[in-house]
Design a protein around this nucleic acid. Structure first.
Length: 422
RNA sequence: GGCGGGGUACUCAAGUGGACAACGAGGAUAGACUGUAAAUCUAUUGGCUUCGCCUUCGAAGGUUCGAAUCCUUCCCCCGCCA
C-alpha cells in the first residue's frame, strides 16, 4: 500500500509527527480520526485541509473516523485562540452537529468495501459522564505543570486575556476522546491542524498512562496565503462548504481568485491530482499566465469535490456570463438560472420602478446603509445590470428590468445581488 | 474578600471637561493599472431627509451651558495579596 505519510509530505500536507514510528505504522492498515468542532452549522474551507488529510488516509487503505465535537464544542477549544470565547447554547451545538455531519458525509466513503469511514459524536460518550467520576477516571492522570505548559495555555496566561477553567479543561476532554476511540475502534492515530498539537499529545499521554499503549499524532499545516493571511476568508466572510451559506458560484470564485504564488501549493493541498499533472499545469501557466489555468483547474476540482458536477456547471456558467461584460441579449430565465446561487431579494414593481438606486441597493442587502451606497457610487463601484451608476441620485426605471422581472445589482467586480419583481 | 490596573469604532491604539463622529496603524471595501494575480497609487471606512441633524467611547444614573473625559453605583477583564 502507498505510505500515506509520505503522500502527505509530498503534497505539503504534513506539518509534524509525534513520532517517526508513524511512517512504519501506516505501512499496514490502521485506524485514524480527526475531530471537527461544531462552531458553525457548516464547515468552512479551512476545515477542508483536515478532511482531505482523512481522505488520503482512506485512499491509502486505512479506516478513518470523523468526530463531530457535540460535547467539546460546548466548551470551546482554546487552541490558537487569543481570547476567551462566549459559550454557545446547547441547541446551537446540536444543530451545528447535524450540519457538519452532512458536510463530512460528502467527502468520506461510508460504503467502502474494506475500510468504510465512520462518523461519531463525542456527546454520545461525554454527555452522561458525571463530573466527579470524570475527575477520578481521567482528571487524576493529568499534571498541572504539563497542562499549564501547553503553548496556547501559556500564551493566554502570560498575555492579558487569561483563560477560564472551562477552556483550560478542554485538553482533557479531547484527550479522553482519543482514549475512547482507541478502546472502541482501535484508533491509534489522530490527525489535526498544527494548533491541535497540545490536545493530541495530551491524548497520547493519557493512553500511555492508562493502557500502556502507544498512540500517535499527525498534524497538518495551517494554510495561509502568500501574504500570510489565514486562508478561507472572502470579503471578510468565511467560505462555507454548505451551498446554502456560500453559493457554488462564490465558492468557485474564491478558488479562481487564488494568487499565482499560491496556485501550485493549493493544487497539491486541495486536489487529488497527481503530482506530475500539477507540475505540467504549473509549467503551462508560466508560459501563459494570463490564462490562469492553474487557478481554473483548482477551482474546478475543489468545487466538484464539494458541490459535484452540477455545482461546477452552475459556477462556470455564471462566471462566463458575469465576467463577459454586457447583460444585454439575455433573457430573464437565463439570468435566473445563472443566479440561482446568488442572494436575491423580491420586491413589488412599485418599490423598484422610479426608486433611487441607493435605496434598492440597501433593500437587496448589497450594502448595509445608504451612506455606504453613496460612497460606492462616488468611487464608481456600483453597477446596475453591469452598467456603472454615475450618480447617487440615479433611479431605476422600468426599462432596466430584464423582461420586466429581474434587476442585477453589483458592487465591485465580484459581489452580486439579484432583485426579482413579485 | 482586599488592593492596584483596565474596558474607546472591524482589530490594535490615541484622546483625561469644549476645536470629538473621536489622532494614528492595520484590516476591509471601491477606483486606476492588470490577467477576476501580485506590486503600486487614490478614495472611503457610525447613521440619516448629508453645506445640517441624530446616535456612539462597558451599563445606568448624576454634576455642568457643555462629558469619551469629573462623581456615584453596577457589570466584565487582568495582576498582586488573603
Amino acid at each position: 500500500m502507498t505510505n500515506v505519510v509520505q503522500t502527505l509530505e509530498e503534497r505539503g500536507l504534513l506539518e509534524a509527527l509525534t513520532s517517526p514510528d508513524i511512517r512504519e505504522l501506516v505501512e499496514s492498515p490502521t485506524v485514524v480520526y480527526a475531530g471537527f468542532d461544531p462552531t458553525s452549522d457548516s464547515l468552512q474551507v479551512g476545515n477542508l485541509v483536515a478532511i482531505i488529510g482523512l481522505c488520503h488516509f482512506q485512499r491509502a487503505g486505512h479506516r478513518v473516523i470523523a468526530l463531530a465535537g457535540g460535547a467539546t464544542g460546548l466548551i470551546g477549544d482554546p487552541s490558537g485562540k487569543a481570547a476567551e470565547r462566549d459559550l454557545p447554547t446547547v441547541e446551537a451545538i446540536e444543530a451545528n452537529v447535524v450540519g457538519i455531519r452532512e458536510n463530512l458525509s460528502r467527502f468520506l466513503d461510508f460504503n467502502h468495501p474494506t475500510v468504510p469511514a465512520g462518523i461519531v459524536n463525542n456527546a454520545d460518550w461525554m454527555a452522561g459522564y458525571g463530573y466527579l467520576q470524570f475527575l477520578r477516571d481521567v482528571g487524576k492522570h493529568f499534571r498541572m505543570g504539563t497542562m499549564i505548559g501547553k503553548d496556547h495555555v501559556r500564551a493566554r496566561l502570560e498575555g492579558e486575556s487569561g483563560m477560564s477553567y472551562a477552556e483550560f479543561s478542554y485538553q482533557i476532554l479531547q484527550a479522553y476522546d482519543f482514549l475512547h476511540l482507541l478502546d472502541k475502534e482501535g484508533c491509534r492515530v489522530q490527525l489535526g491542524g498544527s494548533d491541535q498539537w497540545g490536545n493530541i499529545t495530551a491524548g497520547i499521554d493519557l493512553i500511555h498512562k492508562l493502557r500502556g499503549e502507544s498512540a500517535h499524532g499527525v498534524t497538518i499545516p495551517l494554510v495561509c496565503d502568500s501574504s500570510g493571511q489565514k486562508f478561507g476568508k472572502s470579503e471578510g466572510n468565511a467560505v462555507f462548504l454548505d451551498s446554502r451559506k456560500t453559493s457554488c458560484y462564490d465558492f468557485y470564485q474564491f478558488f479562481l481568485r487564488t494568487e499565482d504564488a499560491d496556485a501550485e501549493r493549493f493544487l497539491k493541498i486541495f486536489t487529488f491530482l497527481e503530482l506530475p499533472e500539477i507540475d505540467a499545469l504549473v509549467k503551462a501557466a508560466e508560459r501563459d499566465p494570463q490564462k490562469r489555468i492553474t487557478q481554473a483547474r483548482l477551482a474546478e476540482e475543489v468545487t466538484r469535490m464539494v458541490h459535484g458536477d452540477d455545482g461546477v456547471r452552475i459556477a462556470q456558467r455564471a462566471s462566463d456570463v458575469l465576467f463577459g461584460g454586457e447583460l444585454t441579449n439575455i433573457s430573464a430565465d437565463d439570468l435566473l438560472a445563472i443566479f440561482v446561487d446568488v442572494p436575491s431579494t423580491e420586491l413589488p414593481l412599485d418599490a423598484i420602478a422610479g426608486k433611487a438606486v441607493v435605496d434598492i441597493a440597501v433593500e437587496s442587502g448589497l450594502v448595509k446603509s445608504k451612506g455606504e451606497a453613496r460612497r460606492l457610487i462616488a468611487n464608481g463601484g456600483l453597477y446596475v445590470n453591469n452598467q456603472r451608476v454615475a450618480s447617487a441620485d440615479a433611479t431605476v426605471a422600468k426599462s432596466h428590468l430584464v423582461d420586466r422581472r429581474v434587476l442585477v445589482l453589483r458592487s465591485g467586480k465580484r459581489s452580486y445581488r439579484l432583485v426579482k419583481v413579485v
